[in-house]
């Protein structure tokens, strides 16, 4: 079916040094990346840079296999195994996307504000185009709803606009379990006072704020 098929994905590094060199990944590697992104997204308190290319690639694989399945002669065993794999992949992708949508809904104002800042400094966007569209529509709906309902309140409460200035932000100090993907030196803990070195493969519980940059750099993964 996808015998020795290789997928071309541009590996855009979401960091300041945006070297967009083309990497050739096998489908198995793409799934591996997706699984890690899923786990990171699940446990990080804030939204992480999107993996739109990876998601697209897996969805492409799914429809590719589905197409071939409909041509497959009646072979129940092969069909059922293929079907099970598709279900697993679909679960992975949808759980990942759902986690992101939940975060967008919870922190919509904060996320859009950060996106604006990133856009103004020409940094790569954390949201995919469709997520951005969703976020804006969600915020507009929320604004509309508040404007409509708060109309009924006395003017002095309405005019100080507290609800607009107090935006909900994720708790970046939240504690997470992390696994080092390579040897890392000098991870700060306890506000500038203490540092630890992490061996490759070691696991720790640590405040997210101390390792957030290591996740985007792909040095640690959340577990």
């Amino acid at each position: 079916m996808n015998e020795s098929e290789e997928i071309n994905i541009s590996n855009e590094v979401n960091s300041d040094e945006s070297d967009s060199d083309e990497l050739i990944l096998t489908a198995a590697q793409v799934i591996q990346i997706m699984e890690e992104a899923w786990s990171n997204e699940k446990f990080a308190p804030e939204i992480l840079p999107h993996k739109y290319e990876i998601v697209e690639c897996i969805l492409g694989q799914i429809s590719h296999v589905e197409e071939n399945l409909s041509n497959l002669i009646n072979d129940d065993l092969r069909r059922s195994i293929h079907q099970m794999e598709l279900d697993r992949l679909r679960y992975l992708v949808s759980s990942y996307l759902r986690t992101r949508l939940e975060k967008i809904e919870a922190f919509v104002c904060c996320i859009l504000k950060e996106e604006d800042e990133r856009a103004s400094r020409n940094k790569l966007s954390y949201l995919s185009p469709s997520e951005l569209e969703f976020a804006k529509a969600y915020r507009d709906g929320l604004d509309q709803h508040f404007t409509d309902t708060l109309k009924l309140l006395p003017a002095e409460i309405l005019n100080n606009k507290i609800w607009q200035n107090e935006i909900i932000t994720p708790n970046l100090d939240a504690f997470v379990f992390a696994k080092a993907k390579s040897q890392i030196e000098g991870v700060m803990i306890e506000r500038d006072e203490e540092f630890v070195d992490l061996e490759k493969g070691s696991q720790v519980i640590i405040s997210y704020s101390n390792i957030s940059n290591l996740i985007t750099n792909d040095k640690v993964s959340l577990i």
């Binding site: 379990f177 306890e190 577990i223």
Partner: peptide, 23 residues
């Protein structure tokens, strides 16, 4: 404490700490 190593614990075991310890 605000940091601890959890080496050699499997994912399932780490998961049992999740409902309480991080919070």
């Amino acid at each position: 404490g605000s940091y601890a190593a959890v080496d050699n614990l499997t994912l399932m075991e780490i998961n049992t700490m999740r409902p309480l310890l991080p919070q």
